[in-house]
Amino acid sequence: MVVFLIRRLLAGILLVILVASATYIMLNYTGSDVARNIVGETATPEQALAKAAELGLNRPLGVRYFDWLGTTLSGDLGKSWFNNVPVSTTLLNGLPVTLSIIFGALLLSALVSVVLGSLAALRAGWFDKTVQASAVLADSIPGFLVALVLAMVVAVNLGWLPATGFVPFQRSAVEWLRSITLPSIALAFGATAATTQQLRGSMLDVLKLDYVRTLRSRGLSDGRIVFKHVLRNAAPPAVTVLSLQFIGLVGGAVIVEKVFGLRGIGSIATSAAVQGDAPVVLGVVIVMVLIVVVVNLIADLAYGWLNPKVRAE
């Protein structure tokens, strides 16, 4: 178990280094003149060259890369090229926002898909068909559209929840929850659809088995059978789907943050990428890959708990 954890963590760290390195090299070929962006349109070419030299951009790519790799591995993510704020500070400001809506969406997907997936598996007929049709629909509607409609209808027209902005949990738990509700719902749509369908399918497989038939012959209620006996055996494929969806949630957060005017990691990353602010982009990439690695590790552990057959020795 400990060996398994260490091996997975080492593989995860390697993945972070590889993804960050690839990002570093790709950023070099975006074609935008960073130094010119920083000094502005009115500056002379000499000033732009001086700025490039200051940032070390006149050195060969290989030298810059290993220089960057060294400082990053020592734990220093550097400073923004544009406003000189340390990258770690920017990330610490944005992370609570993004993590709140991503984990909100994850929790929402898990809960809703357990309820809908179980009911659809138990009640063949119109309910099942409705759930399946809605799942296909929810999966194919673009996330930004859902976000826009939610923001317009629930927040602007009905005024039930705030349309924009984020309230930190420390300031007010209730306001925090209100501020992340709509973004989380918008983000959860696709993941919920996929997980519900997977759970419905694996649930149907388990419900056919003789041990469930044995429980039914004893007259136990559906709820008891599902929650005490079936769910744990039907969950592993759904957990896998949900952990794969998580990567999609990270991407989806970028759009949802834009729609709801949240200053999270997603909006930080997009503006930094457009400007060519390499330290910020790299910081975002490193943190996001790390989170994905950790979430997948948790999913693997959950899988082992749910299904003793795959438990890592």
């Binding site: 088995l209 003789d210 041990y211 038939r213 044995t214 012959s217 004893r218 007259g219 006996h229 744990r232 055996n233 749910l306 299904n307 003793p308 057959k309």
Partner: peptide, 18 residues
């Protein structure tokens, strides 16, 4: 359920694997 019980054919699917 304390009067009538059942034993099924396939011992691989009749026991909860978890």
């Amino acid at each position: 359920s304390d009067e009538i019980q059942v034993v099924f054919q396939d011992p691989y699917t009749s026991l909860n694997p978890a």
